[in-house]
Design a protein around this nucleic acid. Structure first.
Lengths: 217, 217
DNA sequence: CAATACCAAGCAAGCGCTTGGTTTGTAAAC
DNA sequence: GTTTACAAACCAAGCGCTTGCTTGGTATTG
């Protein structure tokens, strides 16, 4: 319950996780040249789509010439892959921590929903949207690579949902529920605007958890 | 209840609706040159994405030269728009009929969920996937046009969900629920494979309705 | 002084779309 | 029942432009 004392409803320090991932060279420092490019790339890819974003757009966004991009990345697709890979790495770590901080399965699920909503609608939102909508722009080889990382991420969800099923709190199939949740939560990028007031992220989390019939213990 | 006697769980004759829409020139005859092209275009756009599909691909799919396409459509984008517009027209009509065939609000919602799952995973599935994933490839002007048609479609859902809310059967906000449902149902295109056995469309509909806590009257 | 980061210029390929001309379908005119 | 007329459907060729990426060279940095 102590985790809920955090005003942002974040049970873990996202920044500390980021720092350790940077130290392990698993994600780029947002202040580095590479990190800035990936952030701008995520924004452009989300706004215009991968195909409509040219290497000249990407270069201009960080103030260099288009040819200079290829000093940092071998191909344009490698940029897309890097955006996806680093985003999954970060969010997997954040979710793992959020989940471990919770005690009951019910609280763990709530933490996962809240964290996923944060990742979709917060800082990493642009990259998450890219992950959802630009999947087909990856080569099959890259898709396979990224898929491996996603499996780790998805296993977190399935563990918790399966536990809830075993405890009798969930009637439906965990796989089906997770997939419905994936769609429902991903789709929030297209309509949910917390900055415009109205529904807070915590309120949205409540609605999702309630929709699953898990609000009352 | 009589509607459920239909083995396909379709409360209305989809083919008759299609015929009347063709007669009104609101959708193209699938056997016409235009109709065939739009079907192939939907398939290609879904499989490779709009940008990666060239006019040469489109032409080859129906066995003509690329230049000949522009006898039927002024631009490539017009093809994308036509796919979307005709799909929305057909599905709006099907859903309206499915809804009107049901009596209670609960049954109406079930009919809508079932019909949307059918439109996403059945004959019009390719075009529905295009509608979801290729939205940004439309020019803003075209987006506005298509949005008007979508609003009609969405009004159907909101009417039913609002009625359920008024009846006390639904606790959450109708707008939020509809949006969650949009995401959850759209996302089924990425994983739901009814032909591989397992979950039937009716079974999936049950799970969705149950997830909303509306299974028991 | 070496490695890293960048620029200026441009190439080859592929893109949407245009052009001018030919075939095909249809139906009235003789 | 053949001829004439004409539009719709299509082909062959290719134009102009943009694309991802390369190349050879120049700053910058530790």
């Amino acid at each position: 319950m102590s985790v809920l004392l955090n005003p942002l409803d974040l049970p873990v320090n996202q920044d500390k996780i980021l720092q350790s991932l940077i130290a392990e060279n698993l994600v780029s420092d947002p202040d580095s040249a590479r990190g800035r490019l990936l952030r701008e790339a995520a924004r452009l890819f989300r706004d215009k789509g991968y195909e409509r974003t040219t290497v000249r757009d990407l270069a201009a966004a960080v103030g260099i010439q288009s040819g200079s991009l290829f000093h940092h990345f071998r191909t344009k697709e490698e940029i897309l892959k890097a955006v996806m890979v680093e985003t999954i790495r970060l969010n997997t770590a954040v979710m793992q921590a959020a989940m471990e901080a919770a005690d009951s399965s019910r609280d763990k699920l709530r933490a996962l929903v809240s964290a996923e909503l944060e990742s979709i609608n917060g800082q990493t939102g642009e990259a998450m949207a890219v992950l959802v909508f630009e999947w087909r722009s990856l080569s099959e080889a890259s898709q396979a690579e990224v898929l491996k990382l996603r499996d780790i991420y998805e296993a977190l969800w399935l563990d918790v949902l399966s536990a809830l099923k075993d405890e009798g709190a969930l009637i439906a199939d965990p796989f089906v529920v997770r997939r419905m949740l994936t769609g429902a939560l991903s789709w929030t990028v297209t309509w949910y605007r917390p900055e415009r007031g109205g529904l807070t992220r915590e309120g949205l989390t409540d609605q999702v958890v309630a929709m699953l019939g898990l609000s009352q213990p």
